[in-house]
């Protein structure tokens, strides 16, 4: 690759690269400070928690790229958590069917959102707010009290390590390499970016707007479903908690923003969001290792979150004409 080409690649991926560097520095610091040394189980625990948020952030990225948002992502995770706590046990075949059922649940929730936004022409922010209440209601229906039964063997295998590599990380890598990368280059994947960048122009240029949006919300549902499955395997139980659903949604949006995806759509990608999620998770771990008082932790996390999103506003300083800053 020649020099100009390299520079172009660097410029196009500046924010994910920056996020990657920040994450590497923070995680290095964490590994150096934490008392147990670099062991597989330390990596596995960090990876499981990180991948969980990364999957939800990946889910959130798709609608955000179209210029929309999915405020029901956390609720879908909780829904699939409750679903998995019922379905994923028994014989090998039953477990396989259960996994398919859980992912199907996420898919169905995604299709519902997609129908609301594409066919119903509702504003994504308010439509997914309404559907998140419904999804939470269904989770309560499935699991009125916390608990559940997950196949231990299956759970420990998927949340363990394979030749020293955390299985959850392999799962995330597979999603990125085998699903996201090809999808991004597909016609629909490019359509998502085009729609988010300028919907009217995309429509005029013959981009199939409706299928692109539809795919974004369905993909978000599916990835949230996968996150719900992983949550169940990590926790080995389920709880229909509205607070947890809200927290997951908010963290997913924060991860998306930290990862360099624009909330106005059209710019960014899942790789950045995954790194953003890892950064968010490592902040919590670092505070723990640095023995910050538990009372101070929420404030630190909030300040870092606010600081991170404010950094995203730096390009504003380069704008000469003030008019450009208005809608």
């Amino acid at each position: 690759m020649n020099r100009a080409g390299l520079r172009l690649v660097l410029r196009h991926n500046a924010l994910p690269l920056l996020a990657g560097v920040i994450f590497a520095a923070m995680f290095g610091l964490y590994l150096a400070l934490q008392p147990n040394g670099i062991r597989t189980d330390v990596l596995v625990t960090a990876s499981n928690k990180g991948v969980l948020l990364a999957l939800i952030a990946a889910a959130q990225t798709l609608p955000v790229l179209t210029g929309g948002i999915d405020l029901s992502a956390g609720a879908i995770v909780v829904l699939c958590n409750c679903l998995a706590s019922i379905l994923v046990n028994g014989s090998g075949l039953q477990i396989a069917l259960g996994v398919v059922g859980v992912l199907g649940g996420g898919l169905a929730a995604g299709v519902f959102n997609a129908l609301a936004v594409v066919v119903g022409r509702l504003q994504p922010i308010i439509a997914t707010l309404a559907t998140s209440t419904m999804f939470y209601g269904v989770s309560l229906l499935l699991r009125p009290s916390p608990g559940g039964d997950v196949d231990d063997d299956f759970a420990s295998r998927l949340t363990g390590a394979w030749y020293g590599i955390p299985v959850s990380l392999i799962l995330l890598g597979a999603v990125l390499l085998l699903v996201w990368m090809p999808f991004r280059r597909s016609l629909t994947g490019r359509g998502i970016y085009a729609v988010g960048s300028a919907e009217a122009s995309a429509y005029m240029s013959g981009v199939k707007v409706a299928p692109a949006k539809f795919a974004a919300y369905v993909g978000a549902g599916l990835l949230s479903g996968l996150a719900g499955l992983l949550l169940t395997l990590i926790a080995e139980s389920a709880q229909a908690s509205a607070i947890q659903a809200g927290d997951l949604t908010l963290n997913s949006i924060a991860a998306v923003v930290i990862g360099g995806t624009s909330l106005f759509g059209g710019v960014g990608g899942i790789v950045g969001s995954v790194l953003g999620a890892f950064i968010l998770r490592t902040i919590g771990d670092l505070l723990f290792v640095l023995k910050a008082s538990p009372l101070w932790q929420p404030l630190f996390q909030g300040l870092i979150l606010l600081l991170a999103v404010s950094l995203g506003a730096l390009p504003m300083l380069r704008i000469r004409n003030r008019l450009e800053t208005y809608r």
């Binding site: 948002i69 924060a254 404030l299 909030g302 606010l306 999103v309 506003a313």
Partner: peptide, 22 residues
């Protein structure tokens, strides 16, 4: 700062929660 209100007020909410926990 021209940060989208959705994300900025979200951050302020988190900071306030931290302050009040403290």
């Amino acid at each position: 700062l021209r940060i989208p209100s959705m994300i900025f007020t979200l951050g302020v909410n988190a900071v306030l929660q931290g302050l009040m926990v403290l």
